[in-house]
Simulated assay, not measured.
Amino acid sequence: MVQSRNNIQPEKPNTSSRILVIDDEPGIVDFIELGLGYEGYEVLTASDGKTGLQLALSEIPDLIILDLMLPGIDGFELCQKLRQTSKVPVIMLTARDELDDRVRGLDLGADDYLTKPFQFKELAARIRAVLRRGSNSPEESSEKGSKLLQVQDITLDPALREVRRDSTRIELSLREYELLELLMRHSNQVLPRDTILDRVWGYDFGGDANIIEVYVRYLRQKLGKPNPITTIRGVGYLMKLRQEEEEPD
């Protein structure tokens, strides 16, 4: 079942953004659609994974709110298929509260993750944050630049989004790449966990700060030894320009 409804006249200026909600719980869909309509978004909905994927590829929304537990194609598979051809931002919804599920969703290309039940204000804030991050303004591009980054024997090419250690190319997920780029751009500088959450995930994860540890572990495994990332206990992480005594994993 697919619907496109906006039964409430928004009191705020129209955002000109189209959001696709893929969820098989009518109550959740109505709740989200009502709130988004009030905020001025155009809303499309789908109640199963197959229809949701078709809409995502044909209607080209500005953002997708995606439930994990869907009939037909679940949210994990849908996100994986979507990322083969599309970079549309995705916020995953689920009743699950397991760290592994959150990490898996983000690693498949989701931009954010929200556990049910949730307040609409929180969802709306995350939508704004994700859309803001995805705008890729000229100022942000100019600030980042495309100059080749090098720390120790690791090089990162922002233009090609390519990472190498010595001459070996390292394949990274989107989040792994963004985390490594942040650490390399601030080499020899301790980055607090809150700063990493804000810069890589776009908002404060709150109690999920240990997700950074998971991704640091992923990076260490893929980059190999000697370990390029140093943990500053109780503070955050840093990459030193010169390799010193290796920190145990």
Score class of each variant (00 low, 15 high):
177 Y>T: 00
48 D>L: 05
167 S>K: 10
184 M>S: 10
143 E>R: 14
58 S>W: 00
168 T>A: 15
170 I>E: 00
141 S>M: 11
151 V>F: 02
139 E>A: 13
218 Y>T: 02
170 I>Y: 02
166 D>L: 12
60 I>T: 14
141 S>I: 12
84 Q>A: 12
180 L>S: 06
229 I>E: 05
119 Q>A: 14
212 I>S: 02
60 I>E: 15
47 S>E: 13
218 Y>Q: 08
113 Y>P: 05
108 L>V: 00
139 E>P: 01
12 K>A: 05
194 D>V: 12
80 Q>T: 13
160 L>E: 11
135 S>K: 14
67 D>F: 01
159 A>M: 07
174 L>M: 08
174 L>W: 00
217 R>S: 05
214 V>P: 00
210 N>S: 03
26 P>C: 09
220 R>T: 11
130 V>Q: 13
196 I>D: 10
29 V>I: 12
80 Q>I: 04
154 I>Q: 10
227 N>I: 01
167 S>L: 06
202 G>C: 15
140 E>Y: 03
236 G>S: 02
123 L>R: 06
212 I>Y: 00
57 L>G: 02
127 I>V: 10
191 L>E: 08
49 G>L: 06
154 I>H: 03
208 D>E: 12
27 G>Q: 15
151 V>R: 11
226 P>D: 08
220 R>C: 11
34 L>K: 14
49 G>A: 04
240 K>M: 09
180 L>H: 03
132 R>P: 06
234 G>S: 01
172 L>K: 08
3 Q>V: 07
204 D>S: 12
199 R>M: 13
121 K>A: 14
207 G>D: 15
197 L>R: 06
125 A>P: 01
9 Q>V: 11
23 D>C: 03
70 L>R: 11
122 E>F: 09
213 E>H: 05
89 P>W: 12
134 G>H: 14
24 D>R: 00
134 G>Y: 04
160 L>K: 12
173 S>M: 02
196 I>R: 02
114 L>H: 06
49 G>R: 04
2 V>Q: 11
116 K>P: 08
173 S>T: 15
85 T>A: 05
37 G>R: 00
218 Y>E: 10
156 L>Q: 08
190 V>S: 13
65 I>P: 04
246 E>N: 01
57 L>I: 03
120 F>I: 04
